[in-house]
Design a protein around this nucleic acid. Structure first.
Length: 335
DNA sequence: AACCGTAACAACCGCCGCCGA
DNA sequence: ATCGGCGGCGGTTGTTACGGT
């Protein structure tokens, strides 16, 4: 904890955060009723959630603010996708978990319209068990025999990629979390509140940045798993999605699916990727403005030193000359 | 029909970090 | 620099549904 000066008394207070019981008022727990859902939804529709702490009283609920917030974010929010996880979603979860561990909110940021709670539950009740059955340690993503699934170069990439994914998650989460902060929700009125999650949302999809690096990463990581594709397939799902689909390369993904295709930039990236191999990630990071928040780079000075060395003089020149394009090298920040 | 084990998922709890006073 | 309020996160528990005996 960064703020070490906090007293235990304060902690006690915090643990009762938003809890009406702390105020001596009876607070309801347990499953939410349809009536409670209706009240919560109606209030947020009209006023936005505002302060969660004060919401229950205003909305006429005998719940704590925290409970209301959880009910909203994990169940009532209209931009939530529910139901079975697709093959692609499961694969993304496994890959991101290999990189990030149990950082469910970060993982959720890369799965549009899925909540961290849902992903966590799905991991614990489905994926984790399947991995264990297959003799794979779900925490390390390695076979229990100890054989490494990831090559060393991939591990190196993983370090950077984990940082990258977290940074992207921050970018994703900000607009999504602010979605209803102070603004009333403008929804259709479903006949049953408990059908909210089945009702197609009238809201625009949450903002998601283009995850080129994730795509590249996925292709690389997947091809570096030493277990065969049939095993992976059974690990992910029993569905009949073709092996060809499931093992599409990052280049294929960029070529076929990339909604953010920017012509020459993509061509350059592809060429550089070929030229640079695993160091492509470093290039992309430096070349992406979203890796800087308020002007601060999301990577360490050490990284930039390495990167500048890499890009210095002949390295960059050989890449650009092979591509046949005149491109200025990405600038490194000043520390 | 009753009981039991398991799966799935909703909800809670405690801790932590951020931010404004 | 410190404190308190607040929201978010991850771990855990509780509840319900369902299938097998």
């Amino acid at each position: 904890m960064a703020k070490s000066g906090r007293s235990s008394e304060k902690k006690k207070k915090q643990n009762n955060n938003g809890n009406m019981a702390a105020l001596g008022v009876g607070v309801k727990k347990g499953p939410w009723t349809a009536e409670e859902d209706r009240k919560l939804l109606a209030y947020i529709q009209q006023f936005g959630h505002g302060s969660w702490r004060s919401l229950p009283a205003k909305a006429g609920l005998k719940r704590c603010g925290k409970s209301c917030r959880l009910r909203w974010t994990n169940y009532l929010r209209p931009d939530i996708k529910r139901g079975k996880f697709s093959l692609e979603e499961e694969r993304t979860i496994i890959q991101l978990h290999a990189l990030l561990g149990n950082r469910w909110s970060t993982i959720a940021a890369h799965l549009p319209r899925r909540t961290d709670n849902e992903i966590k539950n799905h991991w614990n009740s489905h994926i984790k068990k399947r991995m264990t059955k297959m003799g794979i340690d779900p925490m390390t993503h390695k076979p229990k025999s100890g054989t490494q699934l990831l090559g060393s170069n991939v591990n190196h990439m993983a370090q950077w990629e984990a940082a990258r994914l977290e940074a992207e998650a921050r970018l994703v989460q900000k607009p999504r979390n602010n979605y209803s902060n102070q603004q009333p929700y403008n929804l259709l009125s479903p006949s049953s509140i408990h059908e909210v999650h089945k009702t197609p949302t009238t809201l625009p999809p949450p903002y998601l940045p283009c995850l080129d690096v994730l795509k590249v990463w996925q292709g690389t990581l997947w091809s570096n798993y030493s277990i065969n594709n049939e095993s992976l397939q059974s690990l992910i799902s029993t569905s009949n999605v073709s092996k060809k689909n499931s093992t599409a390369t990052s280049a294929d993904q960029l070529r076929n699916n990339d909604p953010c295709d920017q012509g020459q930039t993509k061509k350059l990236n592809d060429q550089i990727k070929t030229q640079m191999g695993s160091t492509f990630e470093e290039f992309e990071f430096a070349n992406d403005a979203s890796n800087f928040i308020n002007g601060d780079p999301l990577r360490s000075p050490d990284f930039w030193e390495d990167f500048v060395d890499l890009m210095d003089g002949s390295g960059w020149n050989s890449i650009t000359s092979n591509i046949g394009m005149l491109v200025t090298p990405p600038a490194s920040p000043v520390f």
